[in-house]
Amino acid sequence: MSARLEYVLRLADTSLVLGQRLGEWIGHAPALEEDLGLANLSLDLIGQARLLLTYAGEIEGRGRNEDDLAMSRDQSDYRNLALAEQPNGDFGHTIVRQVLIDAFQLELYEGLQRSTDARLAEIAHKALKETRYHFRYSAGWLIRLGDGTEESHRRVQGSLDSLWRFTRELFAEDDVDREMASAGVAPQLADLELRWSAHIDEVLKEATLQRPADVPYVWHGKRGQHTEHLGYLLAEMQFLHRAYPGASW
């Protein structure tokens, strides 16, 4: 697989898997207004995934479209960040996961707007606007929950402590990242990390939350080494395709 294909799949799968997770909330959120808010985030992310998967299919050149890629790859062929596949937990847990990824995608898309890959630059330009809103939404909620009641503070601090270990992967550079950065396709992860960290620190401060210590173990979702959760997510998402091979919908 070419580095470019790998890279585009990482972007696509992270958006898809996160969008799928958020979709699980719709109809079950803490307030009706939040059902609508989470649905909007989910729709944006699935929209990004569709553009990116379509592009990935073109790079691959085997005639696979967005649905072929989404519905027939097994988990080890998925390239999303492990953070994105973590289960929703309670609303606070979902918000913590969202803040951590939104701040990352915010800086990522900002950098990708200047990509030498015109197609990626175009997708990033659209996605950046969406992501700015996502971050506004998720950061707003993290601040309310962190600086809300004792219970809400305890809950989101617990979620932050448990999800933090997946943040190392966001910036763990590998050959694909290096090749894409040196070709000017992708921004340097080290630069992103500094800006991500600044966003996160700012939100955590206002939310009166403690930044957890970094954990040495790094997940490699973007290389297909996933937690146990992704398999279940895909089993649900891909069920019709697998039960009725060859049918179109």
């Binding site: 207004e33 909007n40 939404y137 309310r144």
Partner: peptide, 20 residues
Amino acid sequence: SVHAADARMAIEHARDVYTR
């Protein structure tokens, strides 16, 4: 109308509910 705990949230809810 929308329900919201604060003005910032009210703006977000209004956006999600009335400008889809």
